[in-house]
């Protein structure tokens, strides 16, 4: 799904990465803990989070995430936006809560991790 489509569905504000709306996103994941992001996402995934922290951007950089969505109307601080800008990582902001974001995107065809079977390092996503 194109990032542009995600912005439309979530009625999101684009804080960084306005030039990347054509980007293709493979799947999505909701994570409020940093290690969850690192454990349960693959590259090019959309990260939905309520955790406002520079460390979520750092983790997204490590995991090659596609973009970050801050949910429930939470606004990231300037240092977080600056990090996203520097990394070329799109950051979106929406007033929808996490559960509704996930439901809207899933219904529109953006899969989650378990619905995107791949084997990495001998570990298959689907249990």
């Amino acid at each position: 799904m194109q990032l542009r489509e995600i912005v439309r569905i979530l009625d999101a504000e684009v804080l960084t990465g306005k030039d990347k709306l054509d980007m293709h996103v493979e799947a999505g994941c909701g994570c409020d803990l940093i290690s969850d992001l690192l454990a349960f996402t693959k590259e090019k995934m959309l990260i939905l989070t309520g955790l406002i922290s520079p460390q979520i951007i750092r983790a997204a950089e490590m995991a090659d995430s596609a973009a970050i969505v801050f949910v429930r109307g939470k606004r990231p601080t300037r240092d977080i936006i600056d990090m996203g800008e520097e990394l070329g990582l799109p950051i979106l902001c929406t007033s929808y809560p996490l559960y509704e974001c996930a439901g809207l995107l899933f219904t529109a065809g953006l899969p989650g991790w378990r619905h995107w079977p791949r084997i990495v390092n001998g570990v298959q996503n689907v249990p």
């Binding site: 409020d32 803990l33 290690s35 969850d36 454990a39 390092n121």
Partner: peptide, 20 residues
Amino acid sequence: IREMGFGAGLGLPNMRRYSD
């Protein structure tokens, strides 16, 4: 620490999982 998003108890398991 948990409020900062750490402390999932997945760090060591992640390290083992992503290494050979």
